[in-house]
Amino acid sequence: MTPADDSTWRLPPIAVLLAAVLLVACAEIGGASMARFKLELARWARGAMLARPAVHGLVGVRDVDEPILDEALVKFDAGLRLFHMHAEGMGAVIVTTTLVATTLVRGAGARRLIVALITVGGAGYPLGYLLWSALIPRLGVESAKNTAEWLVWAPFGGAALVGLWMLTGAVAMRLVRR
């Protein structure tokens, strides 16, 4: 139990910390898996793309198809790398910013809202990169990107941004009132 004192950090709810730690753990597992199963992942993606020639605009001519497949595989790999990086980064951001919110935001309603927006948005957003990668072989690069954008990046990223700016405003108000 931490005291309700401005000079001491107050712990965010355990569920928030658990979400952040799980996110970092997933990022680590993702990074390790990318390295360990690089060939298997590339083979799976290539096979799934070859099974859907129309989706990827493949015409059956090697000189035309190979650059298309290569570009899609680069994006597939980039999505996995971006998941790894964003999940690691957002885990740390969730811990630090919810710590600040729990300690410095006075109103209970505002505090809960900020913590919820940052946690849900921050933990959900990186999963969009995983979804993007997973959908590239099935839907094509652009379609997969649009799907991830609307299903994950816009709602979860938007929530995290709103939460972060609300927190910035709340801390600024505390600073002005001091």
Binding site: G157, V171, A172
Partner: peptide
């Protein structure tokens, strides 16, 4: 604390705007 929170919010916003 304000500087750190502001920089984090700005960084997240820059990423979204860049995209």
């Amino acid at each position: 604390v304000f500087v750190a929170v502001f920089v984090i919010a700005l960084g997240a916003t820059t990423g979204a705007l860049m995209s």
